[in-house]
Structures are given as C-alpha cells and as structure tokens.
Simulated scan of single mutants.
Amino acid sequence: MPLERRCFALDLVADSDLIAEYEARHRPGAVWPEILADMRDRGIAAMEIWRCADRLFMIAEIETDQPAQTAVPTIVERWEAEMDRYQRRLPGTPADVKWRVMTRIFDLADQPAQRAE
C-alpha cells in the first residue's frame, strides 16, 4: 500500500485553558473509538499533531490507493462540531475548510550530499 505524507495547519483559540482541554481530548484513549476507526477506514495509516503556542501542525500518512469516501458519519460530524470550540481557521481559509494543506518547500533528501569545506 503506497503512502503519501500530507501536512496541515490549524490554529487553536488562544486560551490556555481551552488549549489544555484540547490536548486532553487527544491523549491516548481520549479520542472516541469511532473517530479512530473512521480515520483508519479512510486510509490514514499514521497521524501526528504537533503544537507550538496556539498553532497546530498535523502530519498524516495516507494510503494513496484508498477509494475516496465522501459521506461523513454522524459521529465524525459530532466530534468535529465539538472540536470547533477549540479551533480557529487560519486567515484566508474558506469556511468549509478546517485544516489547511501545507506545501513542502524543502526536503533534505533533495539536497546535494556534498559538505561545504
């Protein structure tokens, strides 16, 4: 199964109590099992979310041969509605988009292997 790495960004509401709650909602065992199952069903093989202040960065490894699923289960809609309390879209992001896709601009593997002297 070929994988593609995709990266996304999103901001949190700049409130330390809400940020702490958001992190608690994402600790092992805290994410609803139906959400995890839906992610795996959609071909997400791996995912990490990183935070710096109120900025989130998500790295996802997604199976490229997975058929596209358009229907979003009600439980996922409910989870996303609950997460809206903590999240805010990046400036210029359309209303129907939450996580903003990032563009890779550097890869060490693409750079020359020679060292400068």
Rank of each mutant, 00 (worst) to 15 (best):
A109Q: 04
E48F: 05
L10Y: 01
E82S: 10
L18M: 13
D15P: 04
D110M: 07
L10P: 01
D96N: 11
D65V: 10
R40H: 10
M39T: 01
A113N: 03
D54R: 10
T93W: 01
K98S: 06
M58D: 03
P67Q: 12
R51V: 10
G92M: 15
F8Q: 04
V97A: 07
A95N: 06
A95W: 03
I35W: 07
P28L: 02
L18I: 05
A30D: 05
A37T: 07
I105A: 14
V72A: 06
Q69H: 15
M58P: 01
W99K: 01
A95E: 15
I105D: 02
Q87G: 06
F106N: 08
R115S: 15
R27G: 02
W79E: 02
A60S: 13
A30Q: 12
D96F: 04
P33D: 06
M39N: 04
A37G: 01
A46Q: 13
T93L: 04
I105M: 13
P2R: 15
I59E: 07
A95K: 13
T74M: 03
Q111T: 13
A45W: 01
T74Q: 08
A81K: 09
R89Q: 05
L56M: 10
E23Q: 13
G29N: 06
T64P: 03
A53P: 01
E23R: 11
P112I: 00
V13Y: 07
E23K: 09
V97H: 06
L3Y: 11
Q69A: 15
A71N: 14
D11M: 07
K98Q: 11
D110Q: 14
C52F: 06
I44F: 10
S16R: 09
D17H: 08
D54F: 06
D38W: 05
D54P: 00
A71F: 12
E80A: 13
L10I: 11
A45H: 03
P112N: 10
I49A: 03
D96Y: 07
L108H: 04
L56F: 08
G29K: 03
W79D: 00
C52L: 08
E21S: 02
L36R: 14
L56G: 00
V31S: 02
R89C: 08
T64D: 12
M1S: 15
P112C: 04
D84H: 05
P94Q: 12
L10A: 09
E82D: 09
W50E: 06
D96Q: 11
A68I: 15
W79K: 00
E48G: 08
D41V: 03
L3C: 09
S16P: 03
D15L: 09
H26D: 05
P33A: 12
D15G: 04
P33S: 09
F106M: 13
D15M: 07
D38K: 01
L90N: 03
T103I: 07
W99Q: 00
L90R: 03
T64F: 14
A68V: 14
V76W: 02
R5P: 00
I35Y: 03
R25C: 13
P112S: 12
E21G: 00
F8A: 00
I105W: 07
P94N: 06
R25S: 12
M39Q: 11
I105E: 08
E61F: 01
I75G: 00
V76D: 01
V97I: 11
F106K: 09
A14N: 12
P67E: 13
